[in-house]
Design a protein around this nucleic acid. Structure first.
Length: 485
DNA sequence: TTTTGAGTTGTTCGA
DNA sequence: GTCGAACAACTCAAA
């Protein structure tokens, strides 16, 4: 009698190394590797850019599994219906997965655990994607943290994260019943990549989705980029960030792996960065952890104000201004460069995300959820925790939020963080010839400078869609109404 | 229970 | 150009 197969359900953990569910599953007999493209309306669907990434990442995963003798089974539908059926048809004895933290995903996983257990299937779940489970970090009063610094201090006091697991050398392949095999899809069948029009060329140039691509990027970051990270991370004109966010989003690399690789590079002296650079990098990983902590304790983080006082806010609904922001035609070069970088590459530098988000929320007085939804659709790293937590932070409705009177000035920020306009010129080519002095405020440029650059305002590049002092004043007044009393 | 120190990422104004 | 102060209280987390 042969052992019943074990089923590994891949979700946001598209890797073979440091994958605890995978390790648990291969200990018992033949293996079924499964990915389900979730079609249920109960879960938030992926945005377009993330769908593109998923397509590439699944291809990479499928190839990596095949290279080790296994096979990735891809299906489409509702996991609540599919998983119990597969377990039954394939006589699965054990199911393993790595945990997710969105409210709807937790609900689904709980329900499945019950269903499968009642059907005589052993179910195991693991932490693969966080240094600490959200519930493992708590205040002395046993509550959730609402401020990053004490959260991160408490997390650090738990000590070093455990060592990452190696990838299995070989994978076995369970035989599938014919009925199930007939439903198997290829990645191409999922049709996640755009065709007409094909808007993904900039994404293909910028990224290599998949576990190998993630490890390469980490290696390059630790070999070179991390030097000066502490200050350099704020400079969009330099490639000074890790750009690991989409790899983390899909679990192609784990924070444990990042932590230990960074620590090892630091200790062997191979790294150009200082201990201070590494510490800053760790704290950015910490912000991701904090966002998951917030999401776990506030499942409606993407839809409801963390600070309920903001429910009384009356936002503007200006479709024309919103479209200008989305297309990168606000007339503020740093905002427009960011929004176009997002559109072209599926990613935006963190500093510019804050500037662009602040502009939408404060100067255009737009509900943060509108911006969150746009980023969700256009970011390859659109993350269920980071994205809403960060938008709420900028809005002032979130945990540990900036005081309401902090309204980023896109001109000052541009001049501070992109002093030569290198970033602006990269993504707003119509301003290429404009003098550095006016690159962040073309409307101030004298006629001669515009003429020399071959720019006619409102023909080649828009005049500002809103005056900064007007927008700032309006936002301050609107936010003032939310104060107590 | 009360107190105390502290809190990612800012802006503007006036000396 | 540079620097400090004002902005406006508020909430969190621990002692």
């Amino acid at each position: 009698m042969t052992a019943r197969p074990a089923l590994l359900w891949f979700r946001d953990d598209l890797r073979l190394s440091d994958n605890p569910a995978l390790r648990a599953a291969i200990e018992h007999g033949p293996l079924i590797c499964l990915y389900i493209f979730d079609m249920s309306a109960d879960r938030r669907p992926l945005g377009a850019a993330a769908s593109w990434w998923l397509s590439r990442s699944l291809t990479a995963l499928s190839e990596a599994i095949s290279a080790k003798g296994g096979e990735l089974l891809i299906l489409r539908g509702d996991p609540a219906e599919l998983l119990p059926r597969i377990a039954h048809e394939a006589d699965v004895g054990r199911v393993a997965w790595n945990r997710r933290y969105e409210g709807a995903a937790i609900e689904l996983d709980k329900a499945l655990k019950t269903m499968l257990s009642e059907a005589g299937v052993a179910v195991e779940s693991f932490n693969a994607n966080l240094l600490n489970e959200p519930w493992q970090i708590a205040t002395k009063a046993d509550g959730p943290f609402k401020v990053f610094t004490p959260y991160w201090r408490a997390a650090r006091e738990r000590g070093e994260p455990s060592a990452p697991l190696p990838a299995p050398r070989k994978l076995s392949k369970a035989s599938l019943p014919a009925a199930l095999r007939k439903q198997a899809l290829t990645v191409a069948d999922l049709a996640l990549e755009p065709t007409a029009p094909d808007w993904a060329s900039g994404l293909r140039e910028a990224w290599t989705p998949g576990e190998d691509g993630a490890q390469e990027r980490l290696g390059a970051f630790l070999d070179e980029t991390i030097a000066g990270y502490r200050e350099g991370r704020d400079r969009p004109d330099k490639l000074s960030t890790s750009r690991l966010s989409p790899h983390l989003r899909f679990g192609e690399i784990s924070p444990r792996q990042i932590w230990h690789a960074t620590q090892a590079a630091l200790e062997t002296g191979k790294m150009l960065g200082s201990a201070g650079d590494a510490e800053k990098f760790f704290s950015e990983i910490g912000w991701r952890e904090f966002s998951y902590h917030l999401l776990f304790h506030n499942p409606d983080l993407a839809t409801a104000n963390f600070n309920r006082r903001f429910d009384a806010m009356s936002w503007e609904k200006d479709e024309i201004a919103l479209a200008a922001w989305q297309k990168g035609r606000t007339g503020y070069p740093i905002v427009d460069a960011g929004m176009r970088q997002l559109w072209q590459t599926g990613w935006m530098h963190n500093r510019v995300r804050m500037i662009a988000a602040s502009f939408l929320i404060k100067h255009l007085l737009t509900d943060w959820r509108v911006g969150e939804a746009w980023f969700w659709d256009t970011l390859v790293d659109a993350d269920p925790a980071n994205n809403p937590a960060s938008w709420q932070w900028v809005a002032g409705s979130g945990a540990d939020a900036a005081p309401y009177f902090r309204i980023f000035n896109p001109v000052t920020h541009g001049e501070k963080f992109d002093p030569k306009g290198v970033y602006v010129r990269r993504f707003v080519p119509e301003l290429v010839g404009l003098d550095d002095k006016f690159i962040h405020r073309p409307w101030d440029a004298p006629a001669s400078a515009l003429k020399q650059a071959g720019i006619v305002l409102d023909r080649d590049y828009p005049k500002p869609i809103i005056a900064l002092d007007f927008g700032r004043r309006r936002a301050l007044d609107a936010f003032a109404t939310l104060r107590s009393e």
